[in-house]
Design a protein around this nucleic acid. Structure first.
Lengths: 368, 368
DNA sequence: AATGAATTAATCAACATGATTGACTTATTG
DNA sequence: CAATAAGTCAATCATGTTGATTAATTCATT
């Protein structure tokens, strides 16, 4: 089945380009691929033959009804490659197995008061072992992606063990596939880029409101992580008042207003309007400011706002941000559109799984 | 001399890569090029042979004194290609012919109270005609780059004629080479990137203080202009106080404090310290804020500050910005280094000439 | 001072990869 | 049956790689 003179994950740039085009636009016939890539029909024939042989693409039913020979759309083979995602949060750790199309095949999670390295390693080891034994072809797992907040030790003294702890390295020890680790804000952005159902331009910023506020930047259709892996640190954006975005637009500040912490999932997320309202008003001001700064700098037309919050809260936040952005001075630039994210709580875990996917299957191997 | 089966400007990606490496690092022997590009020595031999034959590279004197066969460094042939730059300003228009190494060969300028389309066209036409007739090989001119502020009509009623005027199109009418047009802030950045003597990382932002404040963003060693050609609009960055950067950090605001306008060149630029000081203090605050926003968003390690101001003023501004940036909150990010630009008043005209250069000779044809 | 070993630069010849082109086949609609 | 579009075949070309080879120098040892 697989051509064994070369590793199954060693795809040429044009093979990856074809896969990513089909991922974004849905099933496409060869002729459309030739047109979209600028390659000759012959080149597409050759590359798609390889991709079908190696199990990454499926030939669909021929489409008739148009003039000319009927076309055969090519779609992603769901089992073409599998990816593991691990998302580490303040109250919750999640592990998922995601297929080539972005569907979550297996999901496990564990709740705790606060995460410790030992506990996370144990959860991951056991969970991965279980998954490996239940998957028909574990050799098709391309890698593990880890989504984690950076600087966990800033959460409090009980998190000191995380200082200097090499999570990715420790996880990689007993795995036969590579491990990728990225800030959870960036992975939420990666998820929207790679698996999201939104119709997005090639350039956008992504803001993700969770315990902290994070974000990601996509330029030319690629997640930008920056030279020190710290791009999209939107929570650290300075905002008026001598503060940073995460000082006003994060769930932790909402919890401070409430006086108690909120549950790690949507069930039982109850916030009285007289508390949520002022929080949203203040957060929206800061979000609008940050988004406008991003537009001035990068000519970005769209900002996606998402978060680990109920859909209704996200909606209010987006509406308030749209209103605020209209009030800020914007001479010389076009105010960007604010779009609601589509993935909410699953963004980070999906994005974690998207890390190995991007590495092996996106045209420019986005992250390394 | 030139291989005529192909246009002299049609270089392959690897040819452009070689030229850009030599431009940035100075003369390099073939072995160093092989190492830097990752190409085989043979490939470098082949490509450099073509580049030498076509007049883009010169073989230098062999370098002895090291172990092994002596190396022959390859340097840019100054007349390999020539570029025209036109810079349109509020009080001054400039036209220059720049060679392949960034040296200004011919420079002409004209001062006015305010620019009109007719006057600029006439100046450019006449100047270009004169230059064409005085250059030994006008066929070696690759293109004309134009640096202009956007939205000229915002300067006042007497500039209304610029509304809807297609400057690049009009200039292209009687030229046999292409015309490129970009915001003057972006061209100042391009100049520092391509011709600058600074040692800069692959990612930086550039702030340019002139009548207005503008800027540019370089990512992965390429000037980023953005989907609507408006990236690097740092003057439009929101800053605290409901204002934009250009409301506080521009020569026009200094002139407002002075009560009269400053001359278009350095001679006679006299600003009493009691006026310059507060202007710099306020401008530095806004610059520091914007730079930190850029770093949070893009993980940018360096910001270059330059401007159409005397070196002493620029120095004060940079020092003040460094001081301000230390006072802003920066949890979660590394404060960027502030560097002084190296090109001052010539940045924009050099950058204009750099537009055709980048298009034809940079690996990713930066702008189109 | 002479000499061989090591080192580095660069080229030659053969070959591999992956694209292009033009002719051709196939299946469909109008 | 003409027109149209999808797709493949065979030949060719551009541009890379590899391994052997040549050249010019310094370094270490006699």
């Amino acid at each position: 089945m697989l051509n064994d003179s070369r590793n199954w994950l060693d795809l040429s740039r044009n093979e990856r380009l074809i896969l990513s085009l089909i991922r974004r636009r849905g099933p496409l016939p060869r002729a459309a691929l030739a047109q979209a890539t600028g390659l000759s029909a012959q080149a597409i024939t050759n590359q798609t033959r390889k991709l079908i042989q190696n199990g990454f693409l499926d030939e669909g039913a021929v489409v008739r009804g148009k003039v000319g020979q009927p076309s055969t759309p090519l779609s992603l083979a769901p089992d073409g490659a599998l990816f593991l995602g691990l998302k580490l949060g303040r109250r919750l750790v999640e592990l998922a197995l995601v297929d080539f199309t972005g569907a979550i095949k297996i999901h496990r999670q564990e709740i705790y008061a606060h995460p410790t390295p030992d506990r996370i390693i144990a959860f991951a080891r056991h969970g991965i072992a279980t998954i490996l034994s239940s998957v028909p072809d574990p050799g098709r797992i391309a890698g593990l992606g880890v989504a984690t907040p950076f600087r966990l030790w800033d959460w409090g003294a009980e998190m000191a063990d995380w200082h200097g702890f090499d999570l990715a390295g420790r996880l990689a020890e007993d795995l036969r596939f590579p491990v990728f680790l990225e800030n959870d804000g960036s992975t939420a952005c990666a998820a929207e880029l790679i698996f999201g159902r939104l119709s997005l331009p090639l350039d956008f910023v992504h803001l993700y409101i969770a315990h902290f506020a994070g974000g990601g930047v996509v330029l030319d259709g690629r997640l930008r992580v920056g030279p020190a892996r710290n791009a999209g640190a939107l929570g650290s954006m300075p905002v008026p008042g001598g503060r940073q975005l995460l000082d006003v637009a994060s769930v932790s500040t909402l919890e401070a207003r409430l006086g108690h912490s909120l549950p790690p999932d949507d069930s039982g997320w109850v916030v009285p309007a007289e508390i949520e309202g002022p929080w949203i008003a203040e957060a929206a001001k800061a979000l609008a400011f940050s988004v406008l700064a991003a537009t001035a700098l990068l000519d970005i037309p769209v900002a996606v706002v998402d978060g680990a919050v109920p859909a209704s809260t996200r909606r209010l936040l987006v509406d308030a941000t749209r209103a605020e952005i209209a009030t800020l001075p914007a001479a010389g630039i076009d105010r960007p559109l604010i779009q609601e994210g589509s993935l909410a709580r699953s963004a980070r875990i999906l994005g974690a799984a998207a890390l190995p996917l991007a590495h092996f299957f996106e045209p420019d191997g986005s992250l390394t």
